[in-house]
Amino acid sequence: MMVPVRCFTCGKVVGEHWEEFKDRAAEGEEDPAAVLDDLGIERACCRRMLVSHKDLVDVVSPYQ
């Protein structure tokens, strides 16, 4: 649905970086690894939070 606010494992706040990550890597041209490094998301547990996320609000909202 919405991006998780924090990393499930360590608790770092990752939600605030989602929109930039999405623009630059998930839907953009840049290398996701380089973008994550640039955003300061270093640990594998936090990186998977963004890499594996999919926004579903647009998919769900018509059935509200």
């Binding site: 919405m2 991006v3 606010v5 706040v13 939600g15 605030e16 989602w18 929109e19 926004d55 609000v57 647009d58 909202s61 509200q64």
Partner: peptide, 15 residues
Amino acid sequence: PADENVPIIDLKEDQ
């Protein structure tokens, strides 16, 4: 709030 850019929920028209 310590971070200002954490998305809580995406709201559509009339929500």
